[in-house]
C-alpha cells in the first residue's frame, strides 16, 4: 500500500484535529479499509486511528435505548448487547472472530458497505447516529453505497438503538466473501415494523416499505406472502441475479418474522 502518516489520538478532539490534515482518513478497526489500501484503491496521507480513544468504547442501556460507542468492536457488542439480542446476534455473525475483535460499529456505519450487516440493523431499528457535532436520524444517514451524511472530518461517536419489542436478522451469506448476499433486519416496535435490507441493492441498505406496511398490520410471515420484492436496482453479479436477490429478500423477511 501507499505510505501514510499514522496518528493515534487519545481523545475525540485530538482525532478531529488530526483529521483536518489533507487527505486524512479515520481508521476504526480497518477490517475493510486495510484490504482496500493493500489494493492501492485508497491512499490517505494521514491515517487517524480511533482505536486508542476510550470514550468511544462501550455498550450501555437506559430508558429502552441501547447506546454503543462507535469504537466498540463487533465482539464486544456480541457479548454485551444482551439488552438487544437481535443486535448482539447480528454483531456475532459479522465476518469471523478475528475480524470481530478489530472491526467496530462506527467503522462499519461510516463505510456503509452495501453488503455490511450493521447498516441493516441501524436502519431496521430506526437508530440515531451520534457524531462529534450532531445527531443524525438513520433515515437521513445512508445516502447510497459507501456514501453517508457524514461531513468531511466528522466522526461517529456513538449509535443509539431504540430497543424494539421483537427483532431478528437473517443473513444469507455470499459464498466467497461471507458478507451478506442478502441480509434482512426486521424490528417490531409500538410504532410499527421496519424491514431493512442489505446486500441486495446497488444503492446500499434500504427499507422494504410494502413489507413494513403489511407486517405492521399483521406481524406474521403470511402477511407478506402476496408481496414480492422488486428486482429493479438490485445487484446482479457472479453470486446471484437481481431476481434471485429479490426472492431472497422475501424468504429472509419471512424467516426473520418467524424467528423474531
Amino acid at each position: 500500500m501507499y505510505n501514510f502518516e499514522f496518528v493515534k489520538p487519545a481523545t475525540v478532539d485530538e482525532a478531529v484535529a488530526a483529521l483536518q490534515a489533507e487527505d486524512a482518513q479515520p481508521l476504526s478497526g480497518g477490517q475493510t479499509l486495510i484490504p482496500t489500501m493493500k489494493q492501492r484503491l485508497n491512499a490517505p496521507s494521514t491515517l487517524v486511528s480511533l482505536i486508542g480513544i476510550d470514550s468511544l468504547k462501550g455498550v450501555s442501556e437506559a430508558g429502552g435505548v441501547l447506546t454503543i460507542g462507535a469504537g466498540t468492536t463487533h465482539a464486544t457488542v456480541a457479548a454485551e448487547a444482551g439488552a438487544y439480542p437481535a443486535l448482539a446476534a447480528l454483531a456475532g455473525g459479522i465476518g469471523d472472530p478475528a475480524v470481530r475483535n478489530r472491526g467496530t460499529i462506527g467503522g462499519s456505519l461510516a463505510n456503509n458497505d452495501p453488503a455490511a450487516c450493521y447498516p441493516a440493523a441501524a436502519l431496521g431499528s430506526g437508530a440515531t447516529v451520534v457524531t462529534n457535532t450532531r445527531e443524525i436520524a438513520i433515515d437521513d444517514y445512508f445516502q447510497g453505497m459507501f456514501t453517508t451524511a457524514l461531513e468531511e472530518g466528522e466522526i461517529i461517536t456513538a449509535v443509539k438503538f431504540p430497543i424494539p419489542e421483537k427483532a431478528n436478522y437473517q443473513k444469507f451469506e455470499q459464498p466467497a466473501s461471507r458478507f451478506a448476499l442478502v441480509g434482512v433486519f426486521v424490528a417490531k416496535t409500538a410504532d410499527g415494523v421496519r424491514v431493512a435490507v442489505t446486500g441486495a441493492s446497488e444503492e446500499g441498505v434500504f427499507r422494504w416499505t410494502e413489507a413494513e406496511a403489511a407486517l405492521s398490520a399483521n406481524f406474521a410471515p403470511g402477511a407478506i406472502e402476496g408481496l414480492s420484492a422488486s428486482a429493479d436496482g438490485l445487484i446482479g453479479d457472479l453470486h446471484g441475479t437481481p431476481a434471485y436477490r429479490a426472492s431472497l429478500i422475501k424468504t429472509l423477511t419471512k424467516r426473520a418474522v418467524t424467528a423474531a
Binding site: P175, A176, S177, R178, D237, L238, H239
Partner: peptide, 13 residues
C-alpha cells in the same frame, strides 16, 4: 477475471 480474490472465489470453509 471476475473471481480474482477470496472475496469472489469461494474457498471451502
Amino acid at each position: 477475471l471476475l473471481s480474482g480474490s477470496y472475496m469472489d472465489y469461494a474457498m471451502p470453509r
